[in-house]
């Protein structure tokens, strides 16, 4: 997008950004939760149970995000972005499945590979279109001085 944003032919893309942004945030938050569980599991297994509630919520969020992403109308210019959105959500679902693997226990290799894939696809969504930043810089010392950014500005 450039200085012509808002022109009539940009409207489908803007509608895509507005619809896709919440789904991307959902995937990002769920990814943090599953990764947090994985980190507890691998550094202090006895404490991983602390994150089981978050893990269940993350699995629900991943399923919801995947459905939301599938339902978004995708203009041609957003096709590449949408591909990574779908791939991120799918990888996150695989990560949740690996983390929740009850009978055989957690498959750590599958879990780490799926987390890596979800993270990489999510990073691609941040890079391909504006308005998809993954970090809330407002709680970082470098950025506390910047004016607040509102959801309506992104859309």
């Amino acid at each position: 997008m450039d200085g012509t944003v808002g022109a009539p032919d940009e409207q489908p893309l803007l509608r895509y950004v507005a619809a896709a942004r919440p789904a991307q945030q959902l995937v990002g938050e769920a990814l943090k939760q599953v990764a947090g569980f994985a980190l507890l599991l691998m550094t202090s297994p006895g404490r991983a149970s602390l994150a089981e509630g978050a893990l269940t919520a993350a699995a629900d969020a991943a399923a919801r995000a995947a459905e939301d992403i599938r339902a978004i109308p995708v203009p041609g210019r957003a096709a590449h972005h949408h591909h990574h959105m779908r791939a991120a959500a799918e990888a996150l679902r695989r990560a949740c499945a690996a983390a929740l693997g009850r009978r055989g226990g957690v498959n750590r290799d599958d879990l780490v590979h799926a987390l890596r894939a979800a993270s990489d696809h999510l990073r691609a969504t941040e890079r391909l279109l504006p308005g998809f930043e993954l970090i809330d810089f407002g709680q970082a010392c470098c950025a506390a001085h910047a004016p607040p950014r509102f959801v309506c500005e992104v859309a």
Partner: peptide, 28 residues
């Protein structure tokens, strides 16, 4: 931090400044 993440988006002030990619790298 893991606990705060489960609280929901209206509590995101508590977990701001964190990058999901950093946590994945920490897992690796």
């Amino acid at each position: 931090w893991v606990w705060a993440l489960a609280l929901g988006p209206e509590y995101r002030f508590l977990t701001g400044g964190g990058d999901p990619a950093d946590i994945v790298r920490a897992v690796e």
